[in-house]
């Protein structure tokens, strides 16, 4: 009887097929087709490899990869430093305070990236609000170059990616038993000591998964750096877009895409090992 019942439910597996079909036809299919076609047009496998080598070692790609890595590392570090106290506060407060802080994180989170980028462009421009305020207060004598610099990219990307980190850290910190900290303090540990020896180690898991997800999303970032960066701040995703839009160089785009895809999948593989994917995006 039980066997029959559970069989009745094991056939629920078939319900996954329509979604798998959609992904196969509209997502995986086009990706594989693109890579095969774009690379096959280069010629024999040997020609393909030497072509791939010229692309990967070209100055534009090497520079873009270095820029991408540097920006992504900086963004991840900054996001982590800014988010940690916020998540800590969220995990240890309830009621109105909790709701209010969560509101301030969730509203930007669900606002269109192009809108968030646009508003930072307005804020950071040469005659933007931040420069106006700083000039008015006499902090600076001439406008700071914020927009169209790496600083601009960092500010924009940190703003966009911050919620992912806060929500990931929050999920981990919420699970930390507050009585552990109280016990440590009760036994005479200083606040600092209790934090570094008890709280932080227990939150490391969130730090690792949050940093991974932010870094993964950073290396493929396109909109914010394209709008807020200067001419020399080219990230790999921008280079891929340009080679298609401006130079119609599908093969070059395919090789750079494979490189970015490979890095993304390796990091996602690590993320998959260390964390529960169902918790992604703070769901």
């Amino acid at each position: 009887m039980t066997v029959k019942k559970s069989r009745k439910f094991s056939d629920a597996t078939v319900f996954i097929l329509p979604a798998v079909l959609l992904l196969a036809l509209v997502f995986v299919g086009p990706l594989i087709w693109f890579f095969i076609q774009a690379l096959a047009s280069v010629g024999t496998p040997a020609e393909m490899l030497s072509y791939a080598w010229t692309i990967i070692t070209s100055k534009a790609v090497v520079t873009a990869l270095m820029t991408t890595n540097w920006i992504s590392l900086m963004v991840t570090l900054l996001v982590l430093l800014i988010s940690y106290p916020l998540a800590c506060y969220l995990a240890n407060n309830q009621g109105m305070r909790f709701t209010l802080v969560l509101f301030c994180i969730v509203v930007p989170y669900f606002t269109s990236i192009i809108v968030r980028t646009y508003s930072w462009m307005v804020l950071l421009g040469r005659n933007g609000i931040i420069n106006q305020v700083l000039l008015y207060l006499g902090v600076i004598n001439e406008p700071l170059a914020l927009l169209y610099t790496k600083t601009g990219i960092l500010i924009g990307m940190v703003y966009v990616l911050l919620p992912y980190m806060v929500l990931t850290l929050f999920a981990t910190m919420k699970a930390i038993d507050p009585s552990l900290m109280r016990a440590a303090r009760g036994l005479g540990a200083s606040g600092f000591y209790a934090f570094t020896r008890i709280y932080f180690p227990l939150s490391v898991h969130g730090v690792v998964s949050g940093s991974l997800i932010v870094f993964i999303l950073s290396i493929g970032f396109f909109i914010t750096p394209a709008l807020m960066g200067g001419p020399s701040d080219v990230m790999i995703a921008m280079l891929i877009e340009r080679s298609v839009e401006i130079m119609f160089d599908w093969s070059g785009a395919a090789i750079m895409s494979l490189l970015l895809l490979f890095a993304t999948l390796v990091l996602y593989g690590i993320y998959y090992r260390v964390t529960d994917v169902r918790r992604m995006m703070g769901a």
Binding site: S6, F9, S10, D11, A12, T13, V14, F15, I16, A19, V20, L23, V26, F27, P30, L31, W33, F34, F35, I216, I219, G220, F221, F222, A237, I240, E241, V244, A253, S257, L260, L261, T264, L265, Y268, Y272, V277, R278, M280, M281
Partner: peptide, 29 residues
């Protein structure tokens, strides 16, 4: 409800569209 093998792996595959950079997906499409 279903009992399929490699559930976690299948799920992480189905989450790929938000992990893979949209630029790559968009160009392929």
């Amino acid at each position: 409800r279903g009992d399929m093998r490699a559930k976690k792996l299948l799920l992480s595959f189905m989450l790929l569209p938000i992990i893979i950079p949209h630029v790559i997906t968009a160009i392929a499409m």
